[in-house]
Simulated assay, not measured.
Amino acid sequence: MIVDTHLHVIDRSVLDYPWLSGVEPLNRDWPYASYERDARRAGISATLHMEVDVEPSMIEAETRNVATLADRPDSLIVGAISSCRPEKDDFAEFLERQRANPLVRGFRRVLHVMPDELSENALFRENMARLSGSGLTFDLCVLPRQLDKAIALADLAPDVTFILDHCGVPDIMGEERQPWMERIGELARRPNVHAKISGVVAYADPETWIAETLRPWVEHTIEAFGWDRVVWGSDWPVCTLGGGLLAWVAATHALLDGASADERKKLLSENARRIWNL
């Protein structure tokens, strides 16, 4: 069974998503019920909800909305990765409120659509260091050219567990292997960083990709981080841009052909259960 570490639920009747207007294929509601149907068919037994970059004043409202979904009988949702704003003065108070909420397992601040210097801001770095000792993770969503920023954050807080989203967002369609390959290897030298095998179907040609298209990128990430530091994510509904959840799960199993049973279990479920104490 699979633990999905990257589900997005979009409900525009409850929350505002400023970025959606610029991504027309995703600019609609994506309810949990639609995900759940295919997730159960694919063998997904638990999922973490990943923040969807809502309007900043609604960050905690998003977590409350996820809680209503997690409270449903037999819900697959077992935790939430909350959005956050480490560049803001009120982050310390925000962090304390989230630490008191057992649903929250970690944080993400989307960086790949922000100026590169955001994560170099002194207050941002001071607040990132506050995660030390909290047991909460931090997802890194960066472009290949920003991987050096991820390295700097990992070095800043060596006892914080960082999760690199989407294999570092490689340009698979453009076959841009450098500087991605080199920097993935450098980031993987930090033992506090794990990699999420997710998102890659959205970076390949949606009409022509097959499992072998994805293999070099997925295998390089796994080889760099090792089987003990990789987790799996659907990135639903973004994965619908590249064929959908069932296609991505099928491709994952094809890519894992040849891996041992223990290696498959680590990637698909055991590492996630350990990292987030699920």
Rank of each mutant, 00 (worst) to 15 (best):
I163Y: 00
E117I: 04
H194K: 06
W30E: 01
H49S: 06
T63R: 10
K265G: 12
D262R: 11
K88G: 01
L136G: 02
T252K: 01
A202K: 10
G258F: 02
P144W: 12
S234E: 02
D89M: 02
T63L: 08
T252H: 03
P102G: 12
E51M: 06
S119D: 12
T68K: 14
D148W: 00
D16A: 10
W276V: 04
A92G: 07
I77F: 11
A195I: 08
A39M: 09
G258T: 03
T208E: 12
N27I: 03
E207K: 15
V52P: 00
R264N: 03
R12H: 06
A67T: 02
R41L: 06
D235I: 06
L187E: 07
L267P: 04
C167M: 14
D171K: 09
R64D: 15
D38T: 15
H112R: 12
L256V: 01
I163H: 02
P170R: 01
A157Y: 01
A42G: 09
P170L: 02
E126V: 03
T63N: 14
D53E: 15
W217Q: 09
V169E: 12
P144N: 14
P102A: 12
I59A: 08
D159P: 07
A195H: 07
G244T: 11
E55R: 15
L267F: 12
C84P: 08
M58P: 00
W30I: 05
V3Y: 01
P158V: 11
I222R: 10
Q146Y: 07
H6T: 02
T63F: 04
D29W: 04
V249T: 11
S34I: 11
E212R: 10
R177V: 15
L118R: 06
D11W: 07
P31N: 14
A67F: 01
A100P: 01
T137G: 02
T221E: 08
L140G: 08
S234D: 04
P31R: 13
S269F: 10
M50T: 14
I2P: 01
S45I: 13
P206I: 06
S234F: 01
F124H: 05
G243A: 08
V142P: 03
W209P: 03
D165Y: 05
R229G: 05
G43K: 08
H194C: 14
T63M: 08
L103Y: 07
W236H: 11
A157C: 11
L143I: 00
A67G: 07
L140S: 06
L20A: 14
C141V: 05
D159I: 06
V110A: 11
E120D: 11
D74R: 15
D159A: 06
D262E: 14
